[in-house]
């Protein structure tokens, strides 16, 4: 089903743009150029952060962390191997991408752990970054219950990512 959905979205988007007399092809090229720019801005971070991820993995720290947090993660049915991803996700988007990509590469993209990492990345946001952008721009000092509620949403995301992958694949 999802195999047809993505090409369908491509077609419908283009058709709607043409109906409005928009130059769909030129817009695609502009957007692609923007994507290239985005890639160049995150490339330095990816290089540094993947080095960090590889260092943590090679030194045995990743394994120690997941073994240490294993009881907590297993209790909720979240694979302990994703511990690093869960911890870094709310803080840094590119670090989470680096950790997630390493997990997918190590355990395989279609493995349970690889899929869980992908779903976690796809269905959560860089919570603390988003909060600081919004409150910074709006000049808010008293954030009240925003942080606990947002972290609760993240936790639901990590929990559900593990369980949906377990049931659907």
């Amino acid at each position: 089903m999802t195999d047809y959905l993505v090409p369908l979205i491509l077609f419908v988007t283009t058709a709607l743009a043409l109906r409005r007399q928009e130059r769909a092809y030129d817009l695609m090229l502009d957007g692609a150029a923007q994507g290239l720019k985005l890639l160049f801005t995150i490339l330095p971070a990816l290089i540094v952060l993947l080095t960090a991820v590889y260092m943590l993995r090679a030194s045995g720290a990743t394994e120690l962390l997941s073994r240490f947090l294993s009881p907590f993660f297993s209790f909720f049915g979240i694979p302990p191997e994703t511990a690093m991803l869960v911890l870094i996700r709310p803080i840094s988007g590119s670090a989470a991408l680096a950790v997630g990509a390493e997990l997918m590469g190590r355990y395989g993209v279609d493995s349970t752990i690889g899929r869980t990492a992908a779903v976690m990345l796809g269905s959560t946001e860089t919570t603390f970054y988003t909060i600081s952008v919004y409150f910074g721009a709006a000049g808010i000092r008293n954030t009240r219950y925003t942080v606990p509620a947002a972290l609760f949403a993240d936790f639901v995301g990590f929990f559900m990512a593990s369980w949906t992958v377990r049931f659907l694949y």
């Binding site: 695609m28 957007g31 923007q34 995150i42 952060l49 080095t51």
Partner: peptide, 25 residues
């Protein structure tokens, strides 16, 4: 790790650009 960072960026490049294009449309 440093090499893997560049590799990851290159493997992502195509899809990332295509979908930014679709987003603009």
């Amino acid at each position: 790790g440093a090499g893997a960072g560049v590799e990851l960026a290159i493997t992502m490049a195509g899809s990332l650009c295509l979908w930014s294009g679709v987003g603009a449309v």
